[in-house]
Every structure is written in C-alpha cells, then in structure tokens.
C-alpha cells in the first residue's frame, strides 16, 4: 500500500455503499435542528451551519472541489438536512486543504474549513487513521511541514 491510498475514482465511495433506490431519496426522520451529531459538528467547529443560504461561493472558489464527491456548499445542505451519515462516508472532508478560500469569501462569515475539520474530528476522535504514518512514500524528500500537517489533519 503506497502513500496515495485515495486513488479510487471520484463519486464512488458513497455511491457504492448505497442500495438501489436510496441514492436519490432521503427521508427526514428527525428535526435536523435537534440532531445530536449536527450539534456536535456545530460545537466542534463553532459555526452555525444553519446560516448558509446556498450561494455556492465556497464551491466555485474551492481549489480542491474538482476532486470531491460532495461539493462544499452541499456539505452545508447535508448538515441542514441532518444527514451526517453521508458526510461521514464522503471523501470531501478529507480532500479539503484548509486553504480558507471559502472561509474568507463566505458572505455570511461561515468558516467551512472548521466545519470540514469537525467532520474529520468526529472520526479521528474514534482513533481512526486516515493515513498510515508508517507507510508513507517519498519520506526522504517530503518537507517536514508536509508530513506534520498531513498527520495533524489525518490522524488522531
């Protein structure tokens, strides 16, 4: 297993896990405003995700959006609909580069980078390793800040 473990083609992870007929339907079972995991994401990120009005500027400015399976603006919509499960299966939070382009341009001042981090944290805090620090290629040429930042974002 090399360093690049996210070589699966785009739009595959979440789709593969879904059964036929589930992909285009979502049943709201609970008021998303009362969903504990949505609240946890709000608490960790410090962002009121309900203030997003779906202008899309986070997505259009995102340098990594073309590699994502869910667009940044859609992340807010999934949260506003209380669908944290889809976000936990998605690639998007792990493709965000925390470049803050969305954060500084968001018209309502939402820090989407922090929301992405909160979604990652939900998994990392369960001792989940997104990358394996012992199995990194090019260790000799990568600058230390690349490794430090990568492990900080992708390991507990």
């Amino acid at each position: 297993m090399g360093a690049c473990k996210v070589h699966i083609p785009i739009k595959s992870i979440s789709i593969q896990n879904l059964k036929v007929g589930e992909m285009m339907k979502y049943t709201i079972k609970k008021d998303p405003h009362k969903d504990e995991r949505v609240q946890e994401i709000i608490d960790i990120s410090g962002q009121n995700i309900f203030s997003c009005y779906q202008c899309g500027r986070c997505s259009s400015g995102c340098p990594m959006a073309e590699f994502m399976d869910i667009l940044p603006n859609q992340v807010f919509m999934f949260l506003q609909e209380g669908d944290v499960d889809t976000l936990l299966q998605a690639k998007t939070p792990w493709i965000c580069a925390a470049c803050f382009t969305c954060t500084v341009r968001c018209p309502v001042g939402l820090d989407l980078a922090a929301v992405m981090e909160a979604i990652r944290e939900l998994q990392l805090r369960k001792n989940y390793d997104y990358v394996d620090p012992y199995n990194v290629e090019e260790r000799d040429i990568l600058p230390p800040i690349a490794l430090v930042s990568n492990f900080r974002k992708f390991t507990p």
């Binding site: 360093a3 690049c4 340098p63 990594m64």
Partner: peptide, 20 residues
C-alpha cells in the same frame, strides 16, 4: 497568486496536487 497549491495532500494524494 492567492490560490492553494494543494498543501498537505502532497503526502497521500500527490496526483491531486500535481493537477494544482
């Protein structure tokens, strides 16, 4: 001049960074 280079993804997703 103010766009992201792909940052730390260079460790595990270097193809994406190469696109940037």
């Amino acid at each position: 001049k103010n766009e992201c280079c792909g940052s730390y993804h260079t460790v595990d997703k270097r193809e994406y960074v190469a696109e940037r």
